[in-house]
């Protein structure tokens, strides 16, 4: 937790603006490859590509900022014309936002070394094992609610090393992130044991954003699924 706030203080902030004039919407996200990648330029990643395309098609001005997640959440709750993505949609948060959903449907899996003695058939098989994930993630929230032994890091990539040093038995990670990070860190003997949860991730907009604009975004998002745009963007990062 402490390290996370230190990184907050470092104030990683990048701004990627639309070519259209005006700054009607501020769209906040965290750096989370391959969903959002702060490449110092135009910004990239599955979620950023989808959201950019969505606002362009809807004809709304926007600019995207990569900020620490907690700041993204607090700012989007307080500031008009501000949205945060890609937020897992759940009951507790439902009343706080307008939801444009799903921006993307993600999956979470259990990963082990390929020489692991542990065989995970159902989520129950992870009981009693040391599960690594990162602080503040929905993965941690879900597993903790089930009473699993969760070991937290500040960055998800650290879990790869913990797994290979046998400091954790299992890494619980988003399936796209896991493949991306394994590739980045040139890890080949990672074993996907069980994909145990699917999440609808949404664009969550401040409650004062007008219903008309929200409905326009919802309609455009639906069209992006129907015409294959979403699938095409996702496949670029697989």
């Amino acid at each position: 937790m402490k390290n996370r706030f230190i990184s907050l203080a470092v104030f990683i902030l990048s701004t990627f603006a639309s070519s259209a004039c005006g700054t009607s919407f501020t769209l906040l996200t965290e750096e989370l490859p391959p969903f959002s990648i702060n490449n110092g330029g135009s910004g990239a990643g599955v979620s950023i590509d989808i959201v950019s395309q969505l606002f362009t098609r809807a004809g709304f001005d926007y600019h995207i900022k990569i900020v620490p997640w907690k700041r993204a959440v607090v700012t989007s709750l307080n500031d008009e014309n501000t949205c945060v993505f890609s937020m897992p949609r759940n009951q507790e948060r439902e009343a706080s936002y307008h939801w444009i959903s799903p921006i993307i449907i993600t999956q979470t899996g259990f990963y082990t070394r390929d020489d692991s003695p542990h065989k995970l058939v159902t989520i129950d098989d992870a009981k009693g094992l040391k599960i690594g994930t990162y602080n503040g993630s929905a993965v941690a929230e879900y597993l903790t609610s089930w009473g699993y032994e969760v070991k937290l890091t500040t960055k998800d990539a650290q879990n790869i090393y913990k797994l290979y040093n046998k400091r954790i038995d299992v890494w619980a990670a988003d399936t796209l992130s896991a493949k991306y990070l394994a590739n980045e860190h040139k890890i080949t003997n990672l074993k996907e044991q069980l994909v145990y949860f699917s999440t609808l991730r949404a664009l969550a907009c401040n409650i004062k954003v007008s219903e008309i604009k929200v409905n326009k975004l919802r309609q455009e998002l639906k069209l992006m699924y129907i015409d294959g745009t979403i699938e095409k963007i996702i496949s670029k990062y697989k």
């Binding site: 949609r89 759940n90 058939v121 699917s198 609808l200």
Partner: peptide, 18 residues
């Protein structure tokens, strides 16, 4: 191979509606 996911009822409704 059967994966039976468990989530909140509201999430089930949103997923089937999606």
């Amino acid at each position: 191979k059967l994966v039976h996911e468990i989530t909140g009822e509201d999430d089930v409704v949103k997923k089937i509606a999606t």
